Amino acid sequence: MSFIVIAVIVLGAIGLVAAIVLYVLSKKFAVQEDPRLGEVAALLPGANCGGCGFPGCGGLADALVKGADAGSIDGLFCPVGGSAVMGEVADLLGMAVANSEPMVAVVRCNGTCENRPKVSEYSGLRTCTAMNACGAGETACGYGCLGCGDCVSACQFGAIYINPETGIAEVDEEKCTSCGACVKACPRNIIELRKKGPKGRRVYVSCMNRDKGPAAMKACKVSCIGCGKCEKECPFGAIKVEGNLSYIDFNLCRLCRKCVNVCPTHAIEAVNFPAPKPKADKCGTGCGDGKCGIRK
């Protein structure tokens, strides 16, 4: 019986000593959490989408607090919360934050079923990543949208979907938060974040085909052929042709749409612009051609 009592006493003593050691160590090495972390995290939307470049809202909150202590939070931005949330965070931290222009995801492909017909049938795992790994996919274009919806699965906001008629991913700009998840999910890198533009208007090259003109046109009727007409026409130097592909810099573009009119393959998209007005009938003959000569 005495052995049991001794064992209990020894174990109790060991437990007591261990508890004292743990208590002392916890006090000595305690890490005090900045109360601002919780306050900033509470202001953030909690989407944990990674669009800010950090692994979650907690990571962004930590970066914002550290940035405030360093004197600047420039370059830190929550795409989901936008300028409104960042303004609240800046007020909380006593910092100024630069206004960021709204961004939106853009699918740079117009290879619809009509423009880019199928030349084969894919049988396998129905994901863009798997299909891309197997080759060009079901069409002759090795650069366009595969239509399997990896971007759809990645979007937490239901802002992107596959149009059943065209087979191409389309973005609902009203729901898009520019988190960039779809950009990362696309194995062909055809989704880009661009400035939303005034009244949602923007101009971009809806093609990623880098093949030379004849090969590109054979694969898709509305492919960019790298002819350079748009580059020569742009008065603002916003367009460059590299690797047989034209690209419009949205920071330089002034939305004049001159490039749209000269593109021979209609590869340049102009979004949310008003429909062109019908030409005036200047000759008064009812011909509607806008010319002053009388049509016979």
Score class of each variant (00 low, 15 high):
114 E>R: 12
107 V>P: 03
123 S>H: 13
157 F>E: 03
105 A>K: 01
135 G>W: 09
102 P>M: 07
104 V>C: 06
150 D>Y: 02
148 C>S: 03
113 C>F: 11
153 S>F: 02
138 E>M: 03
148 C>Q: 12
112 T>M: 05
140 A>W: 00
102 P>W: 06
102 P>K: 10
151 C>M: 06
159 A>I: 03
98 A>D: 14
124 G>Y: 04
155 C>I: 07
158 G>N: 14
95 M>I: 09
98 A>W: 01
97 V>H: 12
110 N>S: 11
141 C>D: 12
123 S>I: 14
139 T>P: 00
104 V>D: 04
124 G>W: 07
118 K>P: 02
157 F>N: 05
153 S>W: 00
149 G>M: 07
100 S>K: 15
156 Q>E: 14
125 L>M: 11
109 C>P: 01
104 V>Y: 02
154 A>P: 03
128 C>Q: 04
142 G>I: 08
141 C>F: 04
98 A>H: 10
103 M>P: 01
133 A>K: 13
134 C>V: 13
135 G>P: 03
102 P>C: 08
154 A>V: 09
122 Y>W: 11
115 N>I: 01
110 N>Q: 15
135 G>L: 09
106 V>C: 09
130 A>M: 12
150 D>E: 09
109 C>I: 01
158 G>I: 04
133 A>G: 15
155 C>G: 10
136 A>Q: 07
145 C>P: 00
159 A>D: 08
106 V>W: 01
119 V>R: 10
135 G>F: 08
147 G>F: 02
109 C>M: 04
138 E>H: 03
106 V>A: 10
146 L>H: 10
137 G>I: 08
127 T>S: 15
138 E>T: 13
131 M>Y: 00
121 E>C: 00
116 R>D: 08
136 A>H: 10
158 G>W: 06
114 E>A: 15
159 A>W: 09
99 N>E: 15
158 G>T: 10
151 C>L: 08
157 F>S: 07
106 V>Y: 00
95 M>T: 11
108 R>W: 00
140 A>N: 11
121 E>P: 00
130 A>Q: 11
143 Y>P: 00
131 M>L: 14
133 A>I: 05
129 T>R: 10
139 T>A: 05
99 N>M: 03
120 S>Y: 04
121 E>G: 02
133 A>C: 02
99 N>C: 00
141 C>A: 11
99 N>V: 14
130 A>F: 05
156 Q>A: 15
140 A>P: 00
96 A>K: 15
116 R>K: 14
149 G>T: 06
141 C>S: 10
99 N>I: 04
143 Y>E: 12
151 C>Q: 12
132 N>M: 06
139 T>K: 13
135 G>Y: 02
102 P>S: 13
148 C>Y: 06
129 T>E: 15
115 N>S: 12
113 C>I: 13
145 C>L: 06
147 G>V: 08
109 C>Y: 01
112 T>P: 01
114 E>C: 03
127 T>W: 01
